[in-house]
Amino acid sequence: MSTHIVPRHGKSFKERWYLSALWVGFRTTFGHFWRNILNTNAIDVLEYPEVMPNDITARYRGHHRLTHRDDGSIACVACFMCATNCPAQCITIEAQARIDGIDEKEPRRFEIDLLECIFCGYCVEACPCDAIRMDTNIFSMVGNARSDFIRTKEQLLATQGAYAPTHSQAKGAHT
């Protein structure tokens, strides 16, 4: 078995002297400051409201949405997995019996309070039916009142995903 000896830093006089290290750090920050102030046009930033980001990855957790089945009806079966798993406890579900024969249960009420949500994505992980997703790439949510931030079932169903396919991909759960 070979041993890898990790060199420890911070013991030599030069490192303990500290001021030289500070000087190096100072040179770096001042270098950035000086370069950027001489030519502010070269700073690579996004002019946000006018230019929208185009590099959001597929794993980005944005605004939630509820998916549909292939026939267009709601995919959620009101199993409460997401609400149970939610660390912020911001999902409110009321279940009702589903009478159209497609499944047994569906939510009567499905609300997410975005002000409490921490966008952890655990609800998505928990869902057995791929009924809730956060693949909308919507990151800016604004409103004038607290009540504006409570997303209802209808709003969540109407929200479009940013990528195809948009329907529930759960296999076996809905049959």
Partner: peptide, 10 residues
Amino acid sequence: RIASMVQNRL
């Protein structure tokens, strides 16, 4: 502004 210039922001 200086903080942002140091960090390559605006």
